[in-house]
């Protein structure tokens, strides 16, 4: 560095270190997913990380940026992992590749690369996939203890050829999807934890997975990678909004409990909305942002056309970030 100036000492975790801790935080949740949805999740993860690094390498080369410096920052790996975890374990390989393409090339580098992306890259990748391939993206296998019922050959077969040519019996709609369809068709639905319905096994799995993500999130909070503002506000807001509707009409609206512990709510709370680049920077702004995401997630889940609204909610709120930041500037020392 030319013109070395003060401070001459510094102590800060590097970007790479932060990204590594995020990856560590993802471990419990990922393991839980593998446990319930099969080894396919790991296949997704592997292929997503590999393709992300390849895409990153080429785009850095095209953009004439220092490759070693940027490829080792770990941001591509984190984005790819978040995307891979959100994709069903029985999705074919090309889904992952298309997803990472949009995540790394379009959402990240076409917007300026590390630090400049307006939208959460993983959520852009996810949204593109959800819009383009809704059938594949909403089909999850029946949650079971797939670690015990280990069948790698079948998994790889699905991974390579897709589910259509292999088996159809393993998959079913997710709880949110199921309930939504029932409500739309004006049929009664039931969420009962004792009965052996598929919906219940989904839900039980969902709780375990959610709690695993919670553990990872708490780990990141302890490591001071995230502050409490985003996840806590998000969870409380979602609980509050769903409680209000649920109290008004519990036959039409789901309980806050189901909202909190289904879909990717906890993943979203700790890992997705906490993306610093596309999120707000002021403490107040974080609270507004998280509330906005929670509101949109609820509206899309309940009144929208898609069973899960996290990706769209996050992307929509990303647009508002500059405005939120400029409106929530903290009071400078000594200013009235």
């Amino acid at each position: 560095m030319i013109n070395q100036q003060s401070p001459f000492i510094k102590k800060a975790p590097s970007v790479t270190w932060i990204m590594m801790l995020v990856m560590l935080g993802l471990v419990p949740g990922t393991l839980a997913c593998v446990f319930f949805f099969g080894i396919g999740i790991l296949l997704n993860l592997t292929i997503a990380i590999i393709t992300a690094l390849i895409f990153e390498y080429f785009i850095l080369k095209i953009r004439n940026l220092p490759i070693k410096l940027f490829i080792t920052d770990g941001s591509a790996i984190v984005a790819a992992s978040l995307l891979a975890i959100s994709i069903p374990s029985i999705a074919p390989w090309w889904i992952i590749v298309i997803g990472t393409f949009f995540t790394i090339i379009v959402a990240k580098h076409l917007y300026g690369g590390l630090g400049s992306n307006l939208f959460n890259p993983a959520m852009i990748g996810y949204a593109v996939l959800l819009i383009s391939f809704p059938a594949v993206m909403t089909k999850w296998p029946l949650p079971a203890s797939h670690l015990l019922d280990f069948n790698l050959a079948q998994q790889i077969q699905i991974f390579v050829y897709g589910t259509k040519d292999v088996i159809d019996s393993v998959s079913s709609a997710t709880p949110l999807d199921y309930i939504k369809t029932q409500i739309l068709l004006n049929r009664p639905y039931e969420v009962n934890f004792t009965k052996g319905m598929p919906i219940n096994s989904y839900f039980n799995a969902s709780i375990i997975i959610s709690l695993s993500f919670l553990i990872g999130g708490i780990f990141m909070w302890i490591k001071k990678i995230i502050t409490w503002h985003l996840p806590i506000t998000f969870l409380i807001s979602l609980a509050l909004i769903s409680s209000i509707f649920w109290l008004v009409d519990s036959t039409r609206y789901l309980s806050p409990f189901i909202h909190l512990f289904s879909g990717g709510t906890l993943l979203c709370a700790f890992f997705i909305i906490t993306d610093p680049v596309s999120g707000p920077t002021t403490p107040k702004g974080k609270i507004f942002f998280a509330f906005g995401v929670a509101l949109l997630v609820y509206l899309i889940r309940v009144f929208g056309g898609y069973p899960e609204g996290i990706a769209f909610a996050v992307i929509l709120m990303n647009i508002c970030v500059p405005l939120i930041d400029s409106l929530t500037q903290p009071k400078v020392f000594g200013h009235e």
């Binding site: 560095m1 030319i2 013109n3 940026l65 410096l69």
Partner: peptide, 9 residues
């Protein structure tokens, strides 16, 4: 004070 110059992007 001069514009900070350093090595990367």
């Amino acid at each position: 004070w001069k514009y900070p110059v350093y090595s990367i992007a």
